[in-house]
C-alpha cells in the first residue's frame, strides 16, 4: 500500500489488524509495535472485536437456507406478480433502481444514515394491520363502522379519505362475505379496514394505508393467533389478516392483490 520508506501510519495499522500487511511493511509494523505496548494492546482489542463479530454472525451463515429465500420460491412469487413489473411506472422505477445498484462502479455516494433501527416498510403495514385486526375482529356490537348493506357509501367514503379508488374485493370464492369497514388512523394518515366473515364466523380483514416507495413482494408474518400477508404497491400498503395458516391465506391475498391492480394504462394517465 505505502512505499517502503513511508513512515508507519494509521492505514498500516488497520491493514495489520486485518492481517493484510505483508513483507517489509509488516516487519516495520512489528518492529513499531514491539516499541509501543499501547498500540499493541489496541491491535489485540480490535482483533478481539472482529473475531467476536465473526463468531456472533457465524450461526446464520451455517444455517440451511430458509425456504422463502430459495430462488425457485422467489421466482414463483414473482411470476404471480409479473404484471405489475411490466407496468410503465414500475419499469421506470426498475431502471432507476438498476442504475442505483449498478452505479457503485461509477462512484455513487450515499449521505450518511443515522443508526435508527431498521424495519421494513411491509412490517410497518403488517403491524398496523394486525393491531387493527386484533382490535376490531373481537367486537361483537360494533365490528364495523359502516356495514355491507351500505357498501356503495362505504367504498366511496373510504376512497375519498384514502385518495385512491377502493372497491371491496369479492372474496366469496373463499367463503368470505363483506361485513363492512371502517376508517382508522395508520401510518401517519388515514387507513381503511374492510372486514369479512365466513359461515363459521371467522373474520378476515383487509387493511390499506398510504406507504411510499417501490412495490414489494408479499411478506408473510405469523402472529400468535393470526397471520398476515402484507405488500406495497402503487404507493399503498396492503395487508390481509386472518386466523388462517399460510397456505389458506395466500390465495386470498393473491386475489386481493389482483383486484387492486390498475387497469392497463392507468398508471400513465395519473
Amino acid at each position: 500500500m505505502n512505499s517502503r520508506d513511508a513512515p508507519i501510519g494509521e492505514d498500516d495499522l488497520q491493514a495489520f489488524i486485518d492481517e493484510r500487511l505483508s513483507g517489509e511493511r509488516r516487519s516495520m509494523m512489528e518492529a513499531y509495535l514491539a516499541q509501543s505496548p499501547d498500540t499493541r494492546e489496541r491491535v489485540a482489542e480490535d482483533r478481539r472485536h472482529r473475531d467476536a463479530l465473526r463468531a456472533r454472525l457465524e450461526r446464520v451463515a451455517r444455517e440451511p437456507i430458509p425456504m422463502r429465500l430459495r430462488i425457485a420460491n422467489i421466482q414463483e412469487t414473482r411470476r404471480g406478480q409479473r404484471s405489475r413489473w411490466l407496468s410503465s411506472a414500475s419499469l421506470a422505477a426498475g431502471i432507476f433502481l438498476a442504475g442505483a445498484a449498478g452505479g457503485w462502479f461509477a462512484g455513487s455516494v450515499h449521505p450518511p444514515v443515522s443508526p435508527t433501527s431498521f424495519i421494513p416498510r411491509t412490517a410497518v403495514v403488517a403491524n398496523d394491520a394486525i393491531a387493527a385486526h386484533q382490535t376490531f375482529t373481537v367486537e361483537v356490537m360494533h365490528p364495523v363502522e359502516v356495514d355491507a348493506s351500505n357498501e356503495a357509501h362505504l367504498v366511496q367514503w373510504l376512497s375519498k379519505r384514502l385518495g385512491r379508488r377502493l372497491a371491496a374485493p369479492d372474496l366469496s370464492q373463499f367463503g368470505y362475505r363483506l361485513m363492512g369497514g371502517r376508517l382508522l388512523p395508520g401510518g401517519g394518515g388515514p387507513a381503511a379496514q374492510l372486514m369479512y366473515d365466513d359461515v363459521g364466523g371467522k373474520r378476515l380483514t383487509l387493511y390499506v394505508q398510504a406507504a411510499g416507495g417501490a412495490a414489494t413482494a408479499f411478506r408473510f408474518r405469523q402472529g400468535k393467533n393470526e397471520s398476515t400477508f402484507a405488500w406495497i404497491d402503487q404507493g399503498f400498503g396492503f395487508a390481509v389478516t386472518a386466523a388462517s395458516d399460510r397456505n389458506a391465506l395466500l390465495p386470498v391475498a393473491e386475489s386481493v392483490y389482483h383486484s387492486f391492480e390498475e387497469p392497463e394504462g392507468r398508471a400513465i394517465k395519473d
Binding site: 446464520v60 451455517r62 437456507i65 433501527s117 431498521f118 421494513p120 414489494t216 413482494a217
Partner: peptide
C-alpha cells in the same frame, strides 16, 4: 449464507435480515 450474515450484522434481527435478503434476491 454471506448475504444473511451481512444483513443480520446491519439489522440485528433475524426476521428483518431475511426480509432484506429476500428483497435483495428479488
Amino acid at each position: 449464507p454471506a448475504l444473511r450474515r451481512y444483513a443480520l450484522g446491519l439489522s440485528r434481527d433475524d426476521h428483518t435480515a431475511d426480509d432484506l435478503v429476500q428483497d435483495c434476491l428479488e
